[in-house]
Design a protein around this nucleic acid. Structure first.
Lengths: 133, 133, 133, 133
DNA sequence: GTGGTCTAGACCACG
DNA sequence: GTGGTCTAGACCACG
């Protein structure tokens, strides 16, 4: 399935990071699956009216993190997802993610129930699959 | 109650942001409550061995977001927490926070149960209080 | 301790990779230790007569891999080395490294004894330290 | 003996290099010996579903390095392995290979014993033969 | 045609 | 002064 990108040049989030996050979201929610192709660097740069280097930087980070893989002369494709980080490192990152969520949700005035509810709702968008450890 | 700051100069997170986040966490978890005073800009800068401008920048952001308030000539204090954002905007932000958490947790290979479990655990650090909506 | 860089622009190995490898070697052999500073992006670019972006790309990869860390406004420093990859992934990489070494050494006409000997000799340059797993 | 090729189009390693390395490995481990024939360019390209130019490029490099030799109108065959490089050059390359192995193994957190062990294990796949110096 | 590398030069965030 | 981001534009390796 294809993916529609939306870039906000006025955001404090760098353009290349916005691209990275949109691809990561699409992969996490199953909108993009293993083997799906991304637009070519030139095509996406042209569509978003940004420099090809900016797109290339985003794609490079995605490839480095194993989300995608570049095939010579053919383009960038969604890779088979596999975990290379140690269990300890992954747990550390998950704990940090949870701390940020709880802090910000609390400061926004939301209760534990409201916070969990929106997480559960969001997770419904993620397709079932065997956990890859 | 006082707050102990821990700054990591080697982190990719800017120092001023580390200060901001530690105050926000302290307020969210009830370690700091309405009326509690923060160290003076000079005192904290000296203690953390950072530029006073950096501390001032952090305090300015906290005041701007309504977490703290500056009382002329007396210092910076934790403000009475009140929601200035519209219900719609707060819901939008909560949804975005949840999307980030679910996306990253999923890509790290965690299941819905593991993700929720760590959120619940983290929320245990937040004291009960009436929801401020 | 400082580090002397030697770049070969005629090599097929990209300049940014040559920089990366020289820093990795210096860290692996203890010539650079935790906390040591690298030359600034601009200083090294000027010294090597390459574009600052090329040096920045090398430094970015080193930081991403945890070899170094950038401190805001101060420069890039050697980080405390820690392992974030899973044991399985690290074993996989070591096996691949060994396969390459054995293949090339064999084709160069060297015996097992000669190959091991030069590895042992090279390892003598690595300072003793507790294995970090 | 024949050789089975396995190409990963998603790898960052160019296809022609994968072919080169698999032939080199087969020769180094004795799976292919002097006089053994390689598949024709067209046959291999067809089997691997790659561009014939890619296979031709791989064979050209193998011939240039003396691993194989092309016999006009008959195909490409494994050459009698002989060392064309000077002893000094071969020693230089072996030292460089060892440096890379030790550097990366060290940064992965492996000890000298672990590194040597995996080299020894890998070398067990190489048949005994008189050293060709 | 595809991504990868590099130069040249600008502007910004941080401290 | 430091690294981070971005644009503009060139050339190369691969297929």
């Amino acid at each position: 399935m294809a993916i529609r990108f939306h870039i906000t040049t006025s955001s404090t989030t760098p353009i290349f990071r916005q691209i990275v996050e949109q691809v990561r979201t699409a992969v996490a929610t199953g909108k993009l699956v293993t083997g799906d192709g991304l637009p070519s660097v030139r095509a996406l740069a042209s569509e978003l009216v940004v420099n090809p280097n900016t797109v290339a930087k985003a794609y490079a980070e995605l490839c480095r993190d194993g989300v995608t893989e570049a095939r010579r002369g053919r383009g960038v494709f969604v890779a088979r997802q596999r975990q290379v980080l140690s269990k300890a490192e992954r747990n550390r990152r998950l704990t940090e993610l949870a701390a940020v969520f709880v802090r910000e949700a609390t400061l926004l005035g939301f209760s534990r129930e409201e916070g969990l509810s929106v997480i559960v709702k969001r997770w419904a968008a993620v397709p079932e699959k065997e956990t890859k450890s």
